Amino acid sequence: MTAARQAAEARGRRGERLAAWYLRLKGWRILDSRVRTPAGEVDLVAKRGALIAFVEVKVRATAAELDFAIDERRLARVAAAAEILMPRYATQGEDIRIDVVLIAPGKRPQHIENAWIG
């Protein structure tokens, strides 16, 4: 792995930890992180009440870059992975949704609820 890739990986892991803490402060319980499926990876799986959120976390170097951090293709990949993971996490008939947490230095994490309506 190149040094640049290692730095990006470390930045992503830090962002996922920050997003998990942010969601916990908002009353969510983190069920899992970095869950891999044949369709792709889900960064965080969180639960609050009767709702399970499959969360994509995006970290960017500047707040301006957050505008381009997430697109329909990325959300579709998360949705496909969530479809595979649903039976594992939504065992009590919980509602599910796809959320996004955007992180940039000097900016409060931005939690976009129900980001994918597929």
Score class of each variant (00 low, 15 high):
Leu51Cys: 04
Trp116Arg: 13
Gln110Pro: 07
Leu66Thr: 08
Arg60Lys: 13
Val100Lys: 01
Glu16Phe: 05
Gln92Ile: 06
Val35Asn: 00
Thr2Gln: 13
Met86Glu: 10
Glu72Ala: 13
Pro109Ala: 03
Ala39Val: 09
Glu94Met: 04
Arg88Thr: 10
Gly49Lys: 08
Ala3Val: 14
Gly118Pro: 06
Lys47Asp: 04
Arg48Pro: 02
Ala79Val: 08
Ile112Ala: 12
Arg29Thr: 14
Ile103Asp: 03
Ala61Val: 05
Asp99Thr: 01
His111Asp: 08
Val100Phe: 10
Ala20Asp: 09
Ala39Asp: 08
Leu44Val: 09
Glu83Lys: 10
Arg88Met: 11
Phe68Trp: 05
Ala53Arg: 07
Ile70Ser: 07
Arg36Cys: 10
Arg24Lys: 15
Glu72Gly: 12
Lys47Glu: 09
Leu44Cys: 00
Leu31Met: 14
Gln110Ala: 12
Ala4Pro: 07
Arg77Trp: 01
Trp116Ala: 10
Pro87Ala: 07
Leu18Tyr: 02
Arg13Met: 11
Gly106Val: 09
Trp21Pro: 12
Lys47Leu: 09
Glu83Pro: 02
Arg17Gln: 15
Leu18Lys: 11
Arg24Trp: 15
Gln110Met: 12
Arg13Pro: 02
Glu94Arg: 08
Gly49Trp: 02
Arg60Trp: 05
Lys107Pro: 03
Arg97Val: 03
Leu75Val: 00
Leu23Asp: 01
Arg13Leu: 15
Ile96Met: 10
Ile30Phe: 13
Ile96Phe: 06
Val35Thr: 08
Arg34Asp: 14
Val42Gly: 03
Ala10Gln: 15
Pro38Gly: 10
Arg97Ser: 05
Glu83Leu: 06
Asp95Phe: 07
Leu18Gln: 14
Pro109His: 00
Ala10Trp: 12
Arg88Glu: 14
Ala3Asn: 14
Ala90Cys: 09
Ala80Trp: 04
Arg11Gln: 11
Ala4Arg: 11
Thr2Cys: 11
Thr91Glu: 13
Ile30Trp: 04
Pro87Phe: 08
Thr37His: 00
Gly40Pro: 00
Leu85Ile: 04
Val101Leu: 07
Ala104Met: 08
Gln6Lys: 12
Val42Gln: 05
Leu66Val: 07
Glu65Thr: 10
Tyr22Pro: 05
Leu44Tyr: 01
Arg11Lys: 12
Arg13His: 10
Ala7Ile: 07
Leu102Trp: 02
Leu18Asp: 07
Gly40Lys: 02
Ala39Tyr: 12
Leu25Cys: 13
Arg14Ala: 11
Ala20Arg: 08
Val101Phe: 01
Thr37Ile: 08
Phe68Arg: 10
Ala39Ile: 11
Arg36Lys: 15
Gly40Thr: 08
Val59Lys: 00
Glu41Ala: 05
Gly40Ala: 10
Thr91Tyr: 06
Ala19Phe: 00
Leu44Met: 03
Arg48Asp: 04
Gln110Arg: 12
Glu65Ala: 11
Thr91Arg: 15
Leu23Ser: 06
Ala115Thr: 14
Ala39Lys: 14
Glu41Cys: 09
Ile84Arg: 05
Arg77Gln: 11
